[in-house]
């Protein structure tokens, strides 16, 4: 209870964002042409006109929570086929009325999980054939075949495995058709949601040290400042003359993984 209240005020004061608007979620998109999330929540009057006009039944009504009544697209069930019928009907401009070109939609961007994707798995394992991979032993490429913006949003690198490009509009047809179960090998990350794999150097650096400080056991009572607690202390620096105390637990940041 107290923790929830603390979180609520932390969202307002520190993160400077609306605590009533729920967070982003992978594979949960707004209809095409939607303005950014904060403005969308203000402008959408829950008239459900976009839901009624959608010929594919892609747009669903959101359930419990602050977003109740607003439209969502869940590409795992039914993706958006970019017919652009909903945009011109929106009475308040929560969906952009003038948007008619499907390639200019920005609902999100797809991301392939190489550890599940059949094509990527085949590429990695065809040298050493494995019995458990017998089912996979084919170039799937479904996502490439179903994409409405083929060769612009998605390409077949070396005619072997699919790669997403920046022109991806996030319609989610690839997610709907992806054959892997229960987890899809391709997911759409909604526009506005932060992406670790596309983030800048310092974000990833902070994230890496945050992870490493979490994985360590709290050996001493004097836990060194690191990760998000360090960031919090940096936020509290003011010009009143107090000098904040910083402990640096590491001499040299280790380069971890592929970020450098």
């Amino acid at each position: 209870m107290i923790h929830g209240l603390f979180d609520f005020f932390r969202k307002i004061l520190v993160d400077r964002r609306n605590p009533f608007i729920s967070d982003y979620e992978i594979n949960r998109l707004r209809p095409p042409g939607a303005v950014e999330e904060q403005k969308f929540m203000a402008l959408c009057i829950r008239c459900n006109r976009c839901m009624e006009v959608c010929p594919y039944g892609s747009i669903k009504r959101a359930g419990l929570g602050a977003t109740i009544g607003t439209p969502h697209v869940f590409p795992q069930d039914k993706a958006c086929y970019l017919c652009m019928a909903c945009c011109r009907l929106c009475p308040t401009g929560a969906l952009d009325k003038d948007l008619k070109d499907p390639s200019k939609v920005k609902m999100g961007k797809a991301k392939i999980e190489p550890s599940i994707c059949y094509s990527h798995l085949f590429l990695e394992h065809d040298v050493i054939p494995d019995e458990s991979l017998e089912k996979i032993g084919a170039l799937c490429n479904t996502c490439y075949n179903v994409c409405p913006l083929r060769d612009k949003a998605i390409i077949l690198k070396d005619n072997l495995y699919p790669v997403i490009l920046d022109d991806c509009v996030g319609c989610g047809i690839c997610v709907e058709r992806c054959p892997t179960r229960p987890k899809r090998a391709i997911n759409v990350i909604p526009a506005g949601m932060g992406r670790v794999d596309e983030a800048g150097f310092y974000f990833r650096k902070a994230r890496t040290h945050f992870d490493s400080s979490r994985s360590k056991e709290p050996s001493s009572s004097q836990q060194p400042l690191s990760g998000e607690s360090l960031l919090e202390q940096k936020y509290n620096i003011d010009s009143s003359g107090k000098t904040p105390k910083f402990d640096f637990p590491y001499e040299q940041p280790k380069v971890k993984g592929d970020w450098d």
Partner: peptide
């Protein structure tokens, strides 16, 4: 198409004025 939040009669868009007032204040 639509509900009584906002309804569209063959091109004539009609919306509930209180709903629109809310949207103006919120946005």
């Amino acid at each position: 198409t639509g509900t009584f939040f906002a309804i569209n009669f063959g091109g004539l868009g009609v919306a509930d004025p209180s709903v629109i007032l809310q949207a103006i204040f919120a946005a």
